[in-house]
Simulated assay, not measured.
Amino acid sequence: MTESLFQRGSAYQHHRPDYPATLFQWLAAQCNQHTLALDMGCGTGQACRHLEPLFEQVLGADISLKQIQAAPASFTHYVCGSSSALPLPEASVNLITVAQAFHWFDSPSFFAEAQRCLRPGGLLALISYGLCEVEGLGDLIRDYHDGPLEPWWPPERSALMANYPDATLPWQQVPYPGDALECHWGLADMLGYLDTWSALVKARQAGEDPLATFTPVLADAWGNQPRTVRWPLRVKAWRRP
């Protein structure tokens, strides 16, 4: 059965790992003002909700209306719009974040818009996390990611996994001290997360279901106990002159 975009938005909301609060505290500390933060490619508003206690106003923007509609009610204002044409006046934003979405953008257009919208001294941060490792399972998840799913990943995936090596700006780069996403999950949690991977959408549209084949393999290795799942957290941040 084909999933609707709303269903996938709901799955993202419930099964994706959450970012550590320390990430957003660090981002806010790099800003000289805290009037307005924008999360571009916001999806269901995961990053937006972390920014709400730290800024007077938070705006989430995404090209997918269905993703925005799946966001829980909060103080964030949501708009449906493109990263190439942000619905904001010049020099109005203190912080722009892009969490796990930059590989879908037209980077030259987005960088031009970020420069237009950011206030002098404002921060642009590209946030991503790499492939997870599960305590006690060795390379099992990586073998699944790079094996049965490899033909179904979109080409943009490689830039995400490599932490956007071609993303550069002639601005001061602000080094992130480093952190990780960490969850303590049971098997059902992990399967719910794997089911959000975009490669499965393409595979199922073609009549294949690599997750159905992988599930008994994972279940046998996982056992009945919860396990620690960790993702490396990467941030590329620049301060606008």
Score class of each variant (00 low, 15 high):
G178R: 13
G136I: 05
D146S: 15
E133L: 01
P154A: 11
P165G: 11
W152D: 06
G178C: 12
E150C: 01
P154D: 09
E133S: 09
E150L: 07
D139W: 08
C132S: 11
L140A: 14
R142L: 07
T168D: 13
E156I: 04
N163F: 09
P165T: 12
V174A: 05
P148Y: 07
H145L: 02
A162Y: 02
P154M: 03
E133Q: 14
P175D: 14
Q173G: 06
A159P: 01
H145S: 05
E150F: 02
P148Q: 05
N163R: 12
L169V: 06
Q172D: 11
P177N: 08
C132Y: 01
P148S: 11
Y164D: 08
A159Y: 13
Q173D: 08
L137N: 07
D143Y: 01
W171F: 08
A167Y: 05
D143F: 02
A162S: 13
Y144R: 12
S158L: 09
P155M: 04
L137W: 12
I141G: 00
P154L: 06
G136S: 14
P175E: 12
Q173K: 09
L160P: 00
L149N: 06
Y176H: 10
R142H: 15
L149P: 04
P175Q: 10
D166E: 15
L169N: 03
Q173A: 15
M161Y: 10
Y164H: 15
A167P: 12
H145I: 00
L137Y: 12
P148W: 07
G178I: 09
C132Q: 06
W153R: 02
R142Q: 13
W171M: 04
Q173W: 03
T168P: 01
R157T: 00
N163A: 15
R157F: 02
P154W: 09
G178E: 13
D146N: 15
P155R: 09
E156N: 12
A159R: 12
G178M: 07
D146I: 02
P155N: 11
W152H: 10
M161H: 12
I141S: 02
D143M: 06
I141C: 04
P177L: 04
E135N: 10
W153S: 03
D179M: 02
D139Q: 15
L137F: 12
S158I: 07
G178N: 08
Y144G: 05
Q172N: 06
W152F: 14
A162E: 13
M161V: 05
P148D: 09
W171T: 02
E150N: 04
P177I: 03
L131G: 07
L140H: 15
D179P: 03
E150G: 01
L137C: 13
L131W: 05
R157N: 03
H145E: 06
L140P: 12
D179H: 08
